[in-house]
Design a binder for these strands. Sequence first.
DNA 1: GCTAAAATAT
DNA 2: AATATTTTAG
Length: 178
Amino acid sequence: MSLSQSLVPVELATSFSISQERANEMFIEGEETVDLTGDGSDLRKLRRVDNDNGGGGGEEADSSARTSKRPRLVWTPQLNKRFVDVVAHLGMKNMVLKTIMQFMNVEGLTRENAASHLQKYRLYLKRMQGLSNEGPSSSDHLFASTPVPQSLQESSGNGNNVQIPMPYPPHMVPMPYT
DNA sequence: GCTAAAATAT
DNA sequence: AATATTTTAG
């Protein structure tokens, strides 16, 4: 029961101070939810909510992300933007999970997360190209807000290596935790 | 109860 | 690694 206080460190190293009261509204009963970048800030904030483990102590021995099931990841528009942006520079040929994740370098994002999202994004592109040139479907709340880059429209004459003008600086954040 | 999104399995 | 299926959230 006394694990609540350390689970909601919302604020990050930003100049802007977000409402700290927001920290209180992330208690989900029986479920866990992660939120990478909520809204209006950089997207390297990963919040993690861990529920009770039924031990009594409430302390976890493992400090690393290991043996612990990661809660459901929420793809915010910002995070998706980053995803699309990276993918745009890669092109269809190099739109591979490994590369994508490498250039996104969003800490906390796992391979499974990106893979799942990539799948959905591919389906989205296929759908859009199959129908008409333009036409925001009623669904796709997330992807509809993101402009499909021209880099993906063509086959991209790039060969096996891609030149990326350093889209994002490499971060050295080991573990955000909270 | 249905649909969309994320996770998980193949 | 890519696609299919299952599970979970909305």
